[in-house]
Amino acid sequence: MTTAAVPSAKPYRWWHSRAVRRFCRHKLALTGVAMITLLTLACIVGPYVLPYDMLYIDLRARFSPPMTGDHYLGTDPLGRDIAARLLNAGRISLLVGFSAMVLSTLMGALVGVIAGYRGGLVGAALMRFTDAFLAFPSIFLVLALAALLKPTPEMITIIIALTHWMEVARIVEAEVRSLREREFVQAGRMLGLSTSHIMFREVLPNAMGPIIVAASLTVARAILLEAYVSFLGYGIQPPLPSWGNMLNGAQQYLAQAPWLAIVPGVTITIAVTSFNFIGDGLRDALDVRSDHM
């Protein structure tokens, strides 16, 4: 996680930079980092340590409440251990969240750089295209695409990325457009550097702050979206567990077994809160001017 907190372009002694120091003073952000680290470790190590396999069905132990025997978080309607499923699900959900963030950030940066640098008709067309994507409620778009296409974890990741690249695209486009005519870009051109070198090595690093902040918040949004789509049954398909599809069916057993809903829901909230805290800390540390949050 500490690598995400490295905003400086200088490879040497980045840990002395002002941004890192400011981030380390941000208590909420540190709490977020700690919680995410713990959660990630638990998801990686947990399944090896826990006494039950996530797929082991024990029909005699159906609907055991938490702390029954070795079922620390209880069992589901098939008698499977919820703790084992929760941690395995975390691997999928966190991975989907991260991958969607990486993919959408790359897409956004690419669109933003092209639109900002080319400008003119191409730039305007790309930015109107970005605006058009923002007009669709992302939940509709994600659900429609997930229902139409095959909902593997990879596909869900791509679909979420497809609906979340716009913010980064706008940030990058604005930054590139404002830097396009600056002296260091002209100097680069005179030195005979290629356009892509100037764009990605010289101009883009200037927009790193807002991009990193947007990326950390995108992880949070991607986890929420995956949870919702899977909750409805259009996301990650069982027997592969995800935090969202563990909640699928929880509504049905709400009176009988409330822990089915509470355990994954609290975990999702903890994970998403952590990423939002981290995003907030990064915004302060990187001195990103925010209009709303």
């Binding site: 929420l224 919702y228 909750f231 909640l247 709400l254 009176a255 829901g265 999702i268 909230t269 809160t273």
Partner: peptide
């Protein structure tokens, strides 16, 4: 500030389930 950040992190559909559990059931 902190409350708003946590509120933004709670999945709406899950908060609905919790509401149903507490206030209906």
């Amino acid at each position: 500030t902190v409350g708003a950040m946590i509120a933004l992190s709670i999945p709406t559909f899950w908060f609905g389930l919790v509401g149903i559990y507490i206030f209906s059931l």
